[in-house]
Design a protein around this nucleic acid. Structure first.
Lengths: 221, 221
DNA sequence: CTTCATTTATGACTATAGTCAGTTTATATC
DNA sequence: GATATAAACTGACTATAGTCATAAATGAAG
């Protein structure tokens, strides 16, 4: 989406010099600023009032843009969610992986990662539900790249853990780590969904998730 | 719409006797008929024009009721999907289980069941996506009972398969069949989602699903 | 600075899901 | 059959996501 069309055809040398210091065009800068304002306005309103209770008009007003403009930056209201929360989710996942201690049992490490990812959604479950719905069922054909990137990062992280475990002989090397990662993630996802629906406490969720993960991991030992 | 004006006014005794044979009130009968008309109208329009392209007004008109009435029978447009397709999906699943041959390998049986369930959605992938979205993320607090019933039936069917396998010594009895069933289903669900997104052919989907299921099943052998 | 082309912004407008105050219909009771 | 109560129905109405024709801003080039 964000092209940087740098230094096309410049006439003045001074111009080029100025671009060294400030290499984005005014246009690009405006766009980024507007985008940032939209993201901030949307985040604040979604967290303050909830997704359904926030109107696109309110977001546009808070970001100080026209209603139509909003839809140049996001294809739909749901799409805004990805725009707003993708980086945050990605970072949560990456941080969770980074914090793992390699000497912990594999199952513990997995539970820790998923637990961290789930905890990130603890504060606002309704928002989380809609966000996850959008990730699994993207409304139009939109922001597929962002979603794929997020999922890829998670799968890669999990697969790395599994590869390490296989190398250490803790896990049978019979299966492709990536496929196993996908299995584990789908366990997490379903359990989290039920947790978000309010069926369980956080502890019950963690227990249940551990049991589900154990079925896969234990079998591959 | 054609009314059948049977048993309009009866004397007390005759009335009671008639009610023995036909124990539903006129009210209840009207409701059922209306409900049936709504279901049929919605099914036809959804399949003909697609979910997004069908308006609630069209459905109401086709069912010969007022717009407001529609929402006495379904809480939302999405809710209609469950109303319309739940029985069908339940039957597809049950039939798939019934057709299994106990002497086939467990993994084959699982693939067959899931394949049958997925095939049911093959004709109309877009509709399937929205339907599955509604099942996993019911819009309001909507039709939760129906959804739970459907999921329970599937889990029970899978768990029965696994219990049989455990009894036959094919599968280690270490884990709760229900939990294993949930694992397998979540594999199916995620793979089907990607298939519906158009990433794979049906064959690729089946292969991939088999691989995912094998990770769990193999480990428990 | 002026012109022209391209990108970006705008808000009046449209389409439609869902609501609600008022109406009709069914049933129970006399 | 008349009346009262409750259940079911209705369509005009509201709220709002998303569109689109038009306008403004930006940048390139002379």
């Amino acid at each position: 989406m964000s092209h940087d069309s740098r230094a096309r055809t410049k006439t003045a040398v001074a111009r080029v010099a100025a671009d060294r210091l400030q290499p984005v065009s005014r246009r690009e800068r405006n766009k980024q600023e507007k985008r940032a304002r939209i993201v901030e306005a949307a985040r604040q309103l979604f967290q303050e009032k909830g997704f359904a209770q926030t109107t696109t008009l309110e977001i546009a007003e808070a970001a100080d843009i026209g209603t139509g403009t909003l839809f140049l930056y996001a294809r739909s209201k749901e799409d805004l969610l990805i725009l707003v929360f993708k980086d945050e989710m990605l970072e949560t996942a990456m941080t969770a992986f980074a914090r793992l201690r390699a000497e912990d049992p594999l199952l513990d490490q997995l539970v820790q990662v998923f637990d961290a990812m789930a905890s990130h959604h603890e504060r606002d479950r309704d928002l989380a539900k809609i966000l996850l719905r959008e990730i699994m069922f993207p409304a139009n054909g939109d922001r597929l790249t962002d979603i794929a990137e997020l999922m890829d990062a998670i799968f890669a992280g999990l697969a790395a853990l599994l590869t390490t475990a296989q190398a250490a002989g803790i896990l049978r090397a019979k299966f492709d780590p990536r496929l196993v990662a996908e299995n584990l993630f789908s366990n997490y996802f379903m359990d989290m969904l039920e947790w978000l629906r309010g069926l369980w406490t956080k502890e019950a969720f963690r227990d249940r998730l551990r049991q589900h993960l154990a079925i896969t991991i234990d079998g591959l030992r």
